[in-house]
Amino acid sequence: MSRFSWQAVVAGVGGQGVLFVTRVLAGAARRKTKRVLISEVHGMAQRGGSVVSHLKAGPFFSPLVSPGQAQTLFSLDAGEAVRNLSFLAPGGSMIVNAPDTSYLSGQALAALYAHQVQTLVLDASAMARDAGAPKAANVVLLAAAAEAGALPFGREEIWSVLDESTPPARRALNRKLFDMVACDNLAAL
């Protein structure tokens, strides 16, 4: 249990549910290790500005992730993913909500390839919108990341924490969004 060690950066813009995703991931991580630390951004950033939170689970003392140390970069916004790329460790995973990879320059793509970063790109916003829940792209992307094996947790581990953290009125909707995401509609880079 104490061997588990995971650092992640969750990014997006105000109103996308970055902090909610981080807390779900933290809840899942707590089941694997004794110590979980999160750093959140509040205040001005909540008025539509950039939002980023850091998560460290395992033998850590501070909540801030150093550049090059995150195994996972989870971004609800394409531009914010690019801004936070420097946190990713070689061999890490990047999970991005974007219609396609056009937001990445050739240079960025080359760097991701050279450092063996697994990249999962999904238009979670469109999927959430089609499902009639435009604000729930964060849940769709979480489900997709777990489904694709891009997180150190299985799909059901994420689901159970998500379900616990959700008010009863939204649970059915989350289940629907979660089930909507199956392997065959994920496009990995």
Binding site: P67, G68, L85, S86, Q107
Partner: peptide, 9 residues
């Protein structure tokens, strides 16, 4: 720094 991306938004 491993991944540097100059063309940030």
């Amino acid at each position: 720094t491993v991944l540097t991306v100059p063309d940030q938004a």
